[in-house]
Simulated scan of single mutants.
Amino acid sequence: MSKGIILFGHGARNPDWAQPFHRIRASMERQQPGVLIELGFLELMRPTLDEAIDSLAGKGATEITIVPIFMAAGSHIKKDLPLMVGSALDRHPNLSVDISAPVGEADYVIDAMAQYALN
C-alpha cells in the first residue's frame, strides 16, 4: 500500500500563478523525502487532476489524498471535484481517493493568515 498526495488548484493562464504550489510541494518533499506528490489543476494548467491521478497510480500509489489549495469549498470542490474523482475511480478501480477540506478552512492556516495580516 503506497500513499500519494495531490495539491489541487483551480489553474490560471499565467504560469507564475502556480509558483506557490511548487513551493508547497518542495517544502513537503523536504519534510518527508520520498513522499509521492503531484500537482493537479482544474483548468488552464497542467497537469490536470486526471493526469496527476494517473501519474500517482502509475508510480504505485493505491491511496491518494487530494488537498484542495482553495480558501473555501465552493462549487468546484463540492460538485466538480467529486465528479472528477468518480471518473478517475472508473479508470483505477483499486484506488482509494480521499478529499481533504480546503486548506483555507484549517484553523491553523486561518491563524497563520491572521498573524501575517497583523504584522
Score class of each variant (00 low, 15 high):
Leu44Glu: 06
Val97Tyr: 00
Asp111His: 11
Ile66Ser: 00
Met71Ser: 06
Lys3Thr: 11
Ile99Pro: 08
Val67Gly: 01
Gln115His: 05
Gln32Phe: 02
Leu95Cys: 07
Ala57Val: 15
Gly11Arg: 09
Gly60Pro: 04
Glu43Ala: 12
Ala57Ser: 06
Pro82Val: 08
Ile5Asn: 08
Met71Thr: 05
Phe41Arg: 09
Ala114Met: 08
Asn119Gly: 15
Gln19Met: 14
Leu81His: 05
Ile5Glu: 10
Leu81Ile: 07
Ala26Phe: 02
Glu29Gly: 08
Ile99Gly: 07
Asn14His: 12
His22Asn: 13
Pro33Leu: 01
Val109Asn: 03
Ala101His: 13
Leu89Asp: 08
Asp16Glu: 15
Trp17Cys: 05
Val109Phe: 14
Ile53Arg: 14
Asn14Thr: 01
Ala12Arg: 03
Val103His: 04
Gln31Ile: 03
Gly86Gln: 12
Gly60Trp: 04
Asp107Glu: 14
Ile110Phe: 05
Ala57Phe: 03
Tyr108Met: 12
Arg13Leu: 08
Ser96Arg: 14
Gly34Phe: 00
Val103Asp: 04
Ile69Val: 14
Asp80Pro: 07
Gln115Cys: 02
Ile64Met: 02
Lys79Cys: 00
Leu49Trp: 13
Ile64Ala: 07
Gly40Phe: 06
Ala73Asn: 07
Asn119Met: 09
Ala112Arg: 11
Pro20His: 10
Phe8Gly: 02
Ala18Lys: 09
Ala114Gly: 07
Pro15Cys: 00
Ser100Asp: 15
Arg13Gly: 15
Thr48Ala: 03
Pro20Met: 13
Leu39Lys: 03
Ile37Thr: 03
Ile6Leu: 05
Glu51Gln: 14
His76Gly: 00
Glu63Asn: 11
Gly104Asn: 09
Gln115Lys: 15
Gly11Trp: 06
